[in-house]
Design a protein around this nucleic acid. Structure first.
Length: 197
DNA sequence: CAATAGATCATCT
DNA sequence: GATGATCTATTGC
């Protein structure tokens, strides 16, 4: 899909969209558009992290230099480096001072596919371009520089598409964590080939 | 197919 | 000094 058409038919989500419990924001983000520069994709998989009351969350230990952004105002990006190799993208949720967030885990690529392919050499299928938290940051060129970015302004945003597709949402436990594994805080588009496994 | 190993480093104890 | 919100290649059935 042409980037211009995609963006002209969509609206940036306002800050108040993010100012509620992380679990609600996570579900509401399914189907929304993540746009960065000339690349864009539909969010098909997310996980909610509930801050101080969630042992699996980075913010569980409290305010540190790394978690500072999580304690700030909602609607900003929290990007962290993991396993010595990858970056993961989160969106800060809940009112300022309450460090809830939503991990973006997978996208259906919609625009800028050529650029994404160049950033993911060796990946032959479109489904494999952004079907995981580390993969999507590579495909969209997201790194340290984006930590703290305001997602309600500028060229890095999350948008509501019109019309919004009617999507069946699946709820499951979160992936790759050691604590709080029983909580049903992962949400994905049912049957999506673009979600992670 | 499923299971496993290796890459590689910021962050916090 | 250990750990981790991962990915890929490789091995074994």
């Amino acid at each position: 899909m042409p980037w211009e058409e995609l963006v002209s038919g969509s609206d940036v989500l306002p800050r108040r969209f993010y100012e509620r419990p992380a679990e609600e924001v996570a579900q509401a983000l399914i189907g929304k558009l993540l746009v960065r520069g000339k690349t864009a994709g539909r969010i098909v998989e997310v996980e909610a992290y509930q801050g101080l009351k969630d042992r699996a969350a980075h913010a569980w230990h409290g305010l540190t230099p790394r978690t500072k952004v999580l304690f700030g105002p909602p609607g900003h990006a929290y990007v962290y480096f993991i396993y010595g190799m990858y970056y993961c993208l989160n969106v800060v949720a809940e009112p300022e001072g309450s460090p809830g967030c939503v991990l973006i885990r997978a996208l259906e690529p919609l625009a800028g596919l050529e650029l994404m392919r160049r950033r993911r050499p060796g990946v032959s299928t479109v489904t494999g371009l952004a079907s995981g938290p580390g993969k999507l940051t590579l495909a969209m060129g997201i790194g340290r520089q984006e930590n703290g970015a305001d997602l309600t302004l500028g060229s890095f945003t999350i948008r509501r598409s019109s019309p919004e597709p009617a999507l069946q949402i699946l709820t499951t436990p979160r992936i790759g964590i050691r604590h709080e594994t029983g909580r049903l805080l992962r949400f994905a588009v049912a049957g999506s080939r673009f979600a992670s496994r």
